[in-house]
Design a protein around this nucleic acid. Sequence first.
RNA 1: GUGACAACCUGUUCUAUCGUAUCCCGGCAUGUCCGCGGGUAAGGAAAGUCAGGACAACACAGAGCGCCAUACUUCCUAACGGGAAGGUCCUGCGGCUGAACACCGUGGGAACAGCUAGUGCCACAGAAAAUAUACCGUCGCGUCGCAAGGCGCGAUAAGGGUGAAAACGCGGGGUAAGAGCCCACGCCAGGCUGCAGCGAUGCAGCAUGAGGGUAAACCUUAUGGGUUGAAAGACCAAAUAUACCGGGAGUAGUACCGUGCAAGCGGUUACUGUAAGGGUUGCUCGCCCGAUGCCCGGGGGGUAGGUCGUUAGAGGCCGCCAGUGAUGGCGGUCCCAGAUAAAUGAUAGAAGCCGGAGGGCCGGCAACAGGCCCGAAGGAACAGAAUCCUGCUUACAGGGUUGUCACCUAA
RNA 2: GGCCUCAUAGUUCAACGGAUAGAAUAGAAGUUUCCUAAACUUUAGAUACAGGUUCGAUUCCUGUUGAGGCUA
Length: 135
Amino acid sequence: MLTAVKKNTFRKPEKICNQNQIDRLFKEGKSLKSGQFRLLFLETEFSGNPAVQLLIAVPKKSLRHAVDRNRMKRLIREAYRHSKHKILEVYSTDKNHCDIAVVFNGKECVSQADTLTAINELMARLIRTHEKNSD
RNA sequence: GUGACAACCUGUUCUAUCGUAUCCCGGCAUGUCCGCGGGUAAGGAAAGUCAGGACAACACAGAGCGCCAUACUUCCUAACGGGAAGGUCCUGCGGCUGAACACCGUGGGAACAGCUAGUGCCACAGAAAAUAUACCGUCGCGUCGCAAGGCGCGAUAAGGGUGAAAACGCGGGGUAAGAGCCCACGCCAGGCUGCAGCGAUGCAGCAUGAGGGUAAACCUUAUGGGUUGAAAGACCAAAUAUACCGGGAGUAGUACCGUGCAAGCGGUUACUGUAAGGGUUGCUCGCCCGAUGCCCGGGGGGUAGGUCGUUAGAGGCCGCCAGUGAUGGCGGUCCCAGAUAAAUGAUAGAAGCCGGAGGGCCGGCAACAGGCCCGAAGGAACAGAAUCCUGCUUACAGGGUUGUCACCUAA
RNA sequence: GGCCUCAUAGUUCAACGGAUAGAAUAGAAGUUUCCUAAACUUUAGAUACAGGUUCGAUUCCUGUUGAGGCUA
């Protein structure tokens, strides 16, 4: 089980694909902001599946061309893939569940290094707020 | 050789690590599983969604009107508003010429049927913008005046000025002055005849006829067009209720049965009929359906998961043949994305390409020009499949081929 | 993915194919006032872009660009 967690994978069960879940997340979720990224999260009951589920959104208004939108989504996914272990550990030990949405707000493509640092920072802040709430 | 323009072709490659989708193989804990396992994985435009199809569902006796699209000819194609070849007109350049027209060569463009079917419009300016309503001018007659000339009536579109555009050009006749008013030549248009061509059309001849523009103005003629698009549609699973409220139209006739003195009321089957409404996917006629019900508005409930469609095709590549060409035929060979909150990415390195700071060599007494070699920094466009094809349009770094033009060098 | 509509001053809207593109607001300057508001006077400001038809396009046609809507 632990060996499986350490892999830097990002497969379908870790994505949010349900319309109701998405509506609830955008309606009731709390948000964190870092530079050109916005993170929405919502903690729910543990339901068995991966403890954390992610949604990546790059709106058409910020990046007009499909090439840039696809690229940005891939970069965010790549960054999450490398920085998801801590948060997975926290939530699976607490038997909680969390839905996360990452929304890109910039006007131009961002480099891979910058996205990685930004996502890392957002994840760390999310863990801090979670620990505050559980105390 | 360099630069510009046009057309066509091309649109980096490899390795390692981590990762994604799908197919195959293997494993057992048989599934939203696992594997240092193997294969495959975005373009010339995947874009715009502009044309046309394939495919699918629904609809379809028929007639008329309307609406939309197209518009020189022949061919290609499954089809097209696409393409090829040709014709006509306009136009740039060159040749011919003393110069020009015409002609010839070469390049570019054409929404290229019809204002000789009808109607409308043509601002301002101008006399007048299409049935010539006469401002200046020209001419005739009358009248006033010694005269110059004035005034009135009429004729006149040759000249002036205006305008984007002014009533076909030129010569002659004609006339008071003039006018296609008449004549010859010419421009133009459709018609007939002959020849060439499949045809558009060209050449020649004949007689006829109009003499502004505008159809990307209404329109006329000819031809074509059923509607909606893969969120089409089929199946499986899950869940099911049109409950309720308001408004509207309608609930026919004959026969029979029950009740009743009768009018009437209730019932049922059979026949007739179609009043409301619906269908005929713009309208009308016509046709069809038409009562445990129909239309309009409000309001309410359930599910929003999966499989198929979904990738072997008007397929790609190579060769030969036919054709001026688009393209077609034959043979061989290959299997080449299939996601669905939406996969094809990240990091590091190498090679090739562009770039050219700087350096070296040749030559030279030296400077400058020229040639060859090495080569750092930096750079690499437009852009991401969404059912699939055929075209069109638009975007595009760098490289290659061909053509035209300009400049330089050599002869 | 598919199907539509629209684009005019900073904003909201007008304008048969025909003078210098109009109106209301917002802006600027001035008058008035002790100052401000209101009022009055004056003023600058626009047809999304590129072609074509036409003597002449905001208007007609074609192609780009941008904005908005509908669609199980």
